[in-house]
Design a protein around this nucleic acid. Structure first.
Length: 303
DNA sequence: CTTTAGACGAAGTATTA
DNA sequence: TAATAATTCGTCTAAAG
C-alpha cells in the first residue's frame, strides 16, 4: 500500500510531523498516535490489486515508526521522569515520546474512548498473536477500530466483536488470507455477531474492499492438503482460465480453490480425496463437488 | 469400508424495491 | 425495512471402487 509523507502537515493531536497519506483510503493518518486527520474514506482511484510478488511487496505497508496497537507500553510510572536512572537528563527525543505516552495514559484514565480503545487493542493483539497475523495488518486493524470509535459505531456493541471485525477487515483489506472462521475460532464472540460487525464496518466506514482473488488462498490450502508444487502449478493455470471465463464470480473463493486443486490432482493422478481438500480450504465436500461440476462444465475439462 | 455423487431443506448473504 | 434470489451447509441416500 502506497504511503507518502506529507512534509507540511502536523498532527493536531500530538504535534507529530509524521502525517502519512494513505492513498488507497483517501485520508491522512498520524503515524505517531493513529489519529485520522481527514476522515473521508471515499476512494476515487482505481481499485488496486497486486498480481506479482514484487507489486505486492511494494504495495504492502512495511512497518511504521510506532505501533498503533500499543499506546501504553507499561510506562505508566516512568512517564513523569525527566531524567534517567543515573540522574542524567533524557534526550529530547525520548522526552517527547514520553510526553506522548503520558497523554495517552491520561486519556485512557479519564475518557471512555481511551479505555475502550485500550481494551480493543488488547483484543486485537491477543487475536493476532494466536493467528500469527503480521503487525502491519494489526496496525491496519487498529486504525479501522479507531475510525469506528470516532464515528461512534462502537457504542451499544461489544468491543471485542468490533475488534475482531476490524481485524478481519484489515486482513481482507490487505489480502491476507485469513478466513472469518479462523478469527471466530479464537474469539470469544460467535460468528454471527462478528460477521454483522464486519459488514457494519465496511458499510459505515465506506471501505472499498479489494476483490478477493482465490489465487491468494491457493498456496495456503495446497500446503495444508499436502499437494506438491507441480500440481499447484496446474491448479493455478486452471484458476486463471476460470477467472478469465468468469466462472469464479459470486462464489466462495475457498470453494473455488478447493475444487481447482482437486481437479488438478485428478488430472495429475495424485490421489487426494474431496474430504481432504475440503478440510484444507474450510468448506464442505458438497461445495467442492458443486464448484468442480461447473468448472468442468464451463472450462470443458476432461476428468 | 471408503469415496463420490446428488437431493433436500435450513441458514446466512446480497440485492432490490 | 421487507421480500427476493442465489449460495453454501448439513444430512441423507445411493452407487461405485
Amino acid at each position: 500500500m502506497a504511503q507518502h509523507l506529507i512534509k507540511l502537515a502536523r498532527c493536531p493531536e500530538c504535534g507529530s510531523p509524521h502525517i502519512v497519506k494513505d492513498k488507497d483510503m483517501g485520508e491522512f493518518v498520524c503515524s505517531e498516535c493513529g489519529l485520522v486527520v481527514l476522515g473521508d474514506m471515499l476512494n476515487q482511484g482505481p481499485e488496486w490489486r497486486a498480481f506479482t510478488l514484487e507489486e505486492k511487496r511494494a504495495k504492502r505497508r512495511t512497518g511504521s515508526p510506532t505501533d498503533y496497537t500499543y499506546f501504553d507500553k507499561g510506562l505508566s510510572t516512568t512517564m513523569w521522569m525527566k531524567r534517567d536512572a543515573f540522574g542524567r537528563p533524557l534526550p529530547a527525543k525520548t522526552r517527547r515520546q514520553m510526553w506522548r505516552l503520558r497523554k495517552w495514559q491520561i486519556r485512557a484514565q479519564l475518557h471512555d474512548k481511551g479505555l475502550n480503545l485500550m481494551r480493543a487493542m488488547d483484543e486485537i493483539q491477543r487475536l493476532s498473536e494466536k493467528l500469527y497475523i503480521p503487525s502491519s495488518v494489526q496496525e491496519m486493524a487498529a486504525i479501522f477500530y479507531r475510525k469506528a470509535l470516532d464515528k461512534n459505531l462502537v457504542r451499544g456493541r461489544s468491543i471485542v466483536s468490533i475488534a475482531a471485525a476490524a481485524l478481519y477487515v484489515a486482513c481482507r483489506f490487505m489480502e491476507t488470507p485469513k478466513s472469518l472462521e479462523e478469527i471466530v475460532e479464537v474469539s470469544l464472540r460467535d460468528r454471527k455477531d462478528i460477521s454483522r460487525c464486519y459488514r457494519m464496518l465496511v458499510r459505515r466506514l465506506n471501505i472499498k474492499m479489494p476483490i478477493h482473488d482465490p489465487l491468494n488462498y491457493l498456496p495456503k490450502v495446497a500446503e495444508k492438503a499436502g499437494i506438491p508444487g507441480d500440481v499447484q502449478g496446474l491448479a493455478v493455470r486452471i484458476l486463471r482460465e476460470a477467472r478469465r471465463k468468469h466462472v469464479t464470480v459470486g462464489k466462495d473463493p475457498r470453494g473455488i480453490v478447493a475444487a481447482v486443486l482437486y481437479i488438478a490432482c485428478l488430472l495429475k493422478d495424485k490421489k487426494v480425496t474431496q474430504k481432504d481438500v475440503a478440510a484444507a480450504a474450510n468448506v464442505t465436500e458438497v461445495t467442492v463437488r458443486n464448484r468442480k461440476k461447473d468448472l468442468v462444465e464451463k472450462l470443458h475439462l476432461d476428468v
